[in-house]
Write a protein that binds this DNA or RNA. Structure first.
Length: 346
DNA sequence: AAATCGGGGAT
DNA sequence: ATCCCAGATTT
């Protein structure tokens, strides 16, 4: 394997093209921590204002820990994801109560604070304490899967573990380079190796990037596999009385809201019970299953035809539905698969 | 409308 | 240890 010197390239790129003017590019772990939390799911430009206001009101961990939660939430108002603020407050109190007010210095200890996982803990350890700890957020996953051509959904344990291993193997030898290296990873992922339309022509990794070489930047990282659309089974009763069919109005919301449709049952026994309540009828052999695909699930319909010879007088029409002449039914608003079923009868 | 995202909570 | 979600934005 040829020597790609990923870290060296990244650090050099960061020094010449990265950002050096962000207010949280300091070694105070509290400031780094605050920025990392605010930057989760929120863009830099939005964070800048909130960050300044938050720090003005809570300049250190002690003041944050001592504040009422409502004051913290007020300063978070508009940022969204408010559990971040609750965790921040709780973590400040934990630092006060369990770490003697001193922010912990190892990734392991940092990770015990609420709202801080492995990647965020590593970012703080790297920026504030210059420790050789690898981060692996969404940006980094994108950069690594592309540059190293790693297939598989990064949310999958196996793939994620591999990415963590890779991220650790790429760390610069000199811990003094960690802030520039970590910032470089974040900046590269955010500004060059973007999700769509990455700026490969200006990327410092372009000549060694597997995704570029193979024309696969659009395919990597591998998308989250669509979980097999759930399947629902239903039995639709096609109750016939001469040339009339029983239809029911569906509730106004939900699937096929407000449309006329056939009554549905869990099984033939339930359908038979329905029949017996209404007259002298018999189930006929079911028709072959019918599949109907929605965006979010597949519906397997078992058509259950039945004949009702004599009706009980009070059930010709009821709250739930009524008998329809087939021709009229087909002209009414019917769900597509129901219409297909009824068309077989004419 | 769908995909995305670190961490937390549930299992 | 692993699966899945909450909550909000971006594409």
């Amino acid at each position: 394997m040829f020597e790609f010197r990923f870290a060296d390239r990244l650090i050099a790129w960061q020094r010449s093209h990265g950002r050096h003017d962000l207010p949280w590019q300091v070694s105070d772990p509290y400031r780094v921590w605050l920025s990392e939390i605010m930057l989760q799911q929120t863009q830099v430009t939005t964070v800048l204002g909130y960050y300044a206001r938050f720090l003005a009101r809570f300049p250190d961990i002690a003041s944050l820990a001592a504040a009422p939660l409502d004051d913290v939430l007020a300063l978070w108002s508009g940022l969204g994801y408010y559990t971040r603020a609750r965790n921040l407050h709780k973590a400040a109190q934990k630092v006060r109560d369990e770490f003697d007010g001193v922010f912990p210095t190892t990734r392991e200890d940092i990770e015990t604070l609420p709202g801080i996982g492995r990647s965020t803990a590593a970012a703080i350890a790297s920026f504030a304490f210059g420790q050789r700890e690898a981060i692996l957020d969404g940006n980094v996953k994108r950069v690594l899967t592309r540059v190293y051509g790693i297939d598989g959904f990064p949310g999958e344990k196996k793939v994620e573990n591999r990415l963590w291993d890779l991220a650790e193997s790429l760390l610069p030898a000199d811990a003094g380079d960690m802030p520039a290296y970590t910032q470089g990873l974040m900046d590269l992922g955010a500004t060059v190796c973007s999700r769509s339309k990455p700026a490969c022509t200006i990327c410092p990794m372009v000549d060694g990037c597997v995704a570029v070489r193979d024309g696969r930047t659009a395919e990597l990282p591998t998308k989250k596999p669509k979980k097999a659309t759930p399947t629902r089974d239903t039995l639709m009763l096609i109750a016939l009385n001469d040339d009339r069919v029983w239809l029911e109005r569906r509730p106004p919301t939900g699937i096929w809201g407000g449309l006329l449709s056939l009554p549905e049952f869990a099984d033939s026994a339930a359908a038979e019970a329905w029949l017996e309540e209404r007259g002298d009828g018999e189930l006929l052999p079911t028709w072959p299953e019918l599949e109907h695909v929605f965006t979010h699930y597949r519906l397997i319909i078992t058509p259950q035809p039945a004949r009702l010879a004599s009706l009980r007088g009070n059930t010709v029409r009821e709250e739930s539905g009524q008998w329809w002449e087939l021709e009229a039914a087909l002209d009414a608003g019917l769900p597509a698969p129901v219409k297909r079923l009824l068309q077989r009868l004419v």
